[in-house]
Nucleic acid binder design. Structure first.
Lengths: 331, 331
DNA sequence: TTCACGATTGCATTCGAATGCAGACAAGCA
DNA sequence: TGCTTGTCTGCATTCGAATGCAATCGTGAA
């Protein structure tokens, strides 16, 4: 079904059909009705491919996500999809396996003439530059660019970790351990850096061990920290909830009570963190508002590519949970 | 950058450039090298949009997923994306909020001239018919069509539930409760039906309460079942792991030991089911093989639309876990 | 009645790549 | 040398919709 088919059956020109589907175009009401009736009968809708070719707008947004299985991203993706949808844009999904895939993904991104990119994945400065060179609007999600400024949406790790640390210190914790995420993860570095810095302000220095943002890392992290500290650990700060949960389970497996013997805090506020078995003391990212902001930033820049980069920082919500000894009522 | 730009700089015709990017096309080696050099320099790659228009192949596959936040689908989506990628196809993602969205989504699917559809969402017979009418290959994931036969990939619920029930009965459980998923969910009906049928073979009849496939439903389901049975419950069969976990937590909250006082089994084999806190006795879906099969079925049918519908049923893997009293060594 | 003006309408072109067709050219063979 | 085969090439057209431009129509004003 093409606009020509509709035109022929309705006895008008192809232009008329095209104009019927363009809001604000000049078409006589009677003719429009006739055309739309035929279109409906034939099940006609403008071919987005052909439209893209001529208008240079594909309606596609490339969404790059590095580790979909991270429990946190599915929610982000679902929200993002919904919001892009509401603005008439489609999600072209790029689920990255490894960092090395990025260049290959970008090659595909170019080919499909997407209108913009939302990236929740690590991009090298050269990659960011390549995107900018093509004039493609880009919005980073929970990371910022290392090179030139790029619009981004982040959850305030510094504020979040600062709050957690202050609470823990106020409640008497002194011997801290931190389980970091991957060394090249922006959020991990932010969170670990913020927590360490805040501890330093309190005159404390944490033990830090690396992790991978997954459940097993939390378990392994706890073991390492206990070994390093000879069992003298008051609080474990995990760079995300999944690791916090792993740590909680590992602690229990060793007969430690959480939070009685050890306080554990996480970050993200994913679903399982709220389950009875864990009730992780954590910071919940405002996913709804963050995805909305990301989509809005992108949409604005698709309309006007000259808008300056803007960085939106969202405060997380403190979830007291029950995995850390924290003074009640000090909210 | 268009093929014309490359052609001009390389001093050849646009056709030649086009042929350079088509495997097996006839181009003199020397010329090919020259053209490719220019193309690389300009960062040229064929415009997928223009290609789609003329070849009637977009390389896009619409992936419809109903509840991305279900813990199980993210893994499916990531795997599917990777495998489609390997075959040179892109994922156009449609994350459904409500069933009512399907028609709106399909309208978009038409517009983008996707090459095929993989649906992990409920489709009405009329919707399946509309897809068939357009000649679009369709593969269903973990569901089958209610009307005309459609290629599909499923995990064998009957075998899985049968195995679980047999084990439970063999271990002496007699008073069963089942927490179902949404009434319109195919997998829920399959699993609940299979479990009930198998129990009937053993001369047993379970209590059945409805759920929503989420954590809270498991909790609520347990409460309801305990009320209905006056506390006389041996085993709880949840239609998925998330509900099994909710039920386990609710049972513990009531002071019941799992599996000492109550056995709980789930289905899916999602990550959290394997965590120490739960060790859910469950059936793991072979996601890798299932997604590979789904993508293969689709790819075949894109090549040859006349292939007959085929149904692939995969056996799940029994994970003993530790949430049910089951005879050891009876594997 | 005549003219101007605005609302409609269709024509023709454009977007970027793929491909059937025919011409150009070279090598192979008798 | 003459002719047959192939191998390369470029030309021209095609995909389906959007849009600048000019033509057409109707209407109200002068």
């Amino acid at each position: 079904m093409t606009s020509y088919d509709v035109a022929r059956l309705a006895g008008v020109s192809q232009s008329a059909v095209s104009r019927c589907f363009k809001p604000g175009a000049s078409v006589a009401p009677a003719k429009r009705d006739r055309i739309m009736a035929v279109a409906r009968e034939l099940g006609y809708a403008p071919n987005a491919i052909a439209q893209s070719l001529i208008t240079k707008r594909s309606g596609l947004v490339a969404v790059l996500i590095s580790n979909l299985t991270n429990l946190y991203y599915p929610e982000v993706l679902a929200e993002m999809s919904r919001r892009l949808d509401a603005r008439g844009m489609r999600v072209l999904l790029f689920a990255l396996q490894a960092e090395s895939d990025v260049d290959a993904m970008l090659a595909e991104v170019w080919r499909y003439r997407v209108d913009g990119i939302i990236a929740a994945a690590r991009l090298l400065p050269a990659q960011v530059a390549a995107i900018a060179e093509r004039g493609l609007p880009l919005v980073l999600y929970n990371r910022i660019s290392e090179g030139d400024p790029v619009p981004s949406v982040c959850c305030d790790s510094v504020a979040g970790e600062t709050l957690l640390i202050d609470r823990l210190v106020a409640a008497g914790h002194r011997r801290f351990g931190i389980v970091a995420g991957p060394a090249d993860s922006y959020v991990s570095n932010e969170r670990v850096g913020a927590a360490s810095a805040r501890l330093a302000r309190h005159g404390l220095e944490p033990l830090v061990v690396p992790g991978q943002f997954d459940h097993d890392s939390g378990r392994a992290g706890l073991e390492q920290l206990l070994a390093l500290s000879n069992g003298a650990l008051d609080a474990l700060v995990a760079a995300n909830d999944l690791m916090a949960i792993g740590a909680i389970e590992a602690a229990r497996a060793r007969g430690l009570d959480v939070p009685g013997d050890l306080s554990v805090v996480g970050f993200d506020g994913v679903g399982p963190a709220g389950w009875d078995s864990f009730r992780v003391t954590t910071i919940r990212q405002p996913v709804q508002r963050m995805t909305e902001a990301a989509v809005a930033l992108l949409a604005e820049r698709i309309e006007d590519p000259d808008l300056p980069p803007e960085r939106r920082l969202f405060a997380g919500e403190f979830l007291p949970g029950n995995s850390a000894r924290i003074e009640a009522g000090t909210l």
